[in-house]
């Protein structure tokens, strides 16, 4: 009693977060875990059906595998490209230049806008059959396809969109690069190490904790990607399911077909996949991540 009285003001100030976390995050998450074992169409009460949703996913749902494949392609291409691009820009900015804060802000801007609907709409215009990209290609005599409506290319326009949002990992890389003492490079240059050798032997290993952090965060983000695919395909995941991201499929199941139980099961499978990937990543750290304490 006295403890609560003593700390009452503290709990009062904490309450917005506590209410938010328990009522809007943890509560719904646990509810969806229960719902994943039910059949639930929002109109009737959930009906417990055991693991049927999960069984159906792997035995009787080709769209589950198709959407998983799309998302995996997206993860495998977008994450390394985005990280490489972010690192390259960070290294250029780290060389020290006038107006660095301005450039940093400009390069960060796409990350703030990138997941917005407006940018996805813009992207759709850029890569349309008569869009700006083909307009530029036409200058060189190349007649480009309709990037977003061709199932062979559509996913890659989304990969490019993702790479363009390199700002957040770039900022973190930049902070990491600044942590590397300059005398390491000076010692290496006295040893005659070329810039390339310094990059491979000093920068990359010393940056590995930051690379690891960015990798985990970006992979999770990529698995969860939704808005760009939704906007570009108008929510269909087309053409021919080529941009049917896992989250988009989940959304369709839940909010187009009102199969909330099945959608919940899909969500929990995604959670499990992300958890397994993250755990696996942590297991590999001892082989490539160098912590300097």
């Amino acid at each position: 009693m006295t403890a609560i009285r003593r700390n009452g003001a503290g709990y009062l100030f904490l309450s917005p977060w506590l209410i938010g976390f328990f009522c809007l995050t943890l509560g719904p998450a646990l509810a969806s875990l229960y719902l994943s074992f039910t059949r639930f169409d929002l109109l009737n009460a959930p009906e417990f059906i055991g693991a049927q949703n999960y069984v159906r996913m792997v035995t009787a749902d080709p769209k589950f595998a198709a959407s998983m494949k799309v998302t995996l392609i997206y993860v495998v291409f977008s994450v390394p490209l985005k990280l490489a691009f972010a690192l390259a820009v960070a290294m250029v900015l780290n060389r020290g230049m006038r107006g660095l804060p301005v450039y940093r802000a400009i390069f960060y801007l796409p990350s703030l806008l990138g997941t917005s609907v407006a940018i996805a709409v813009l992207w759709r215009q850029l890569f349309a059959a008569d869009g700006m990209v083909n307009g530029i290609l036409a200058q060189f005599g190349i007649i480009g396809p309709s990037w977003i409506s061709n199932p062979n290319y559509s996913i890659y326009t989304l990969v490019v969109l993702s790479v363009w949002q390199f700002g957040s990992p770039m900022i973190i890389f930049l902070a990491g690069l600044r942590q590397i003492p300059t005398d390491m490079y000076e010692a290496a240059s006295l040893d005659g190490a070329s810039p390339a050798r310094q990059f491979w032997r000093i920068t990359l290993p010393l940056l590995s904790p930051v690379i690891f952090f960015n990798l985990v965060i970006q992979v999770i983000e990529a698995f969860k990607a939704f808005t760009p695919a939704f906007v570009i395909s108008g929510g269909s995941g087309g053409p021919i399911n080529s941009t049917l991201f896992y989250t988009l499929y989940l959304y369709q199941e839940g909010f187009s077909y009102f199969r909330m139980g099945y959608a919940s099961a899909l969500a929990w499978v995604l959670v499990a996949i992300i958890a397994v990937f993250t755990a696996f990543s942590f297991l590999t750290t001892k082989y490539w991540v160098h912590y300097d304490d």
Binding site: P181, M184, A187, S189, A193, I202, H290, D292
Partner: peptide, 18 residues
């Protein structure tokens, strides 16, 4: 620097931690 025949010991040692 590498062609001057010089080796240097730094205040921070500058050892490669990895």
């Amino acid at each position: 620097a590498s062609k001057r025949g010089i080796a240097m010991v730094f205040q921070s040692y500058a050892l490669y931690p990895h």
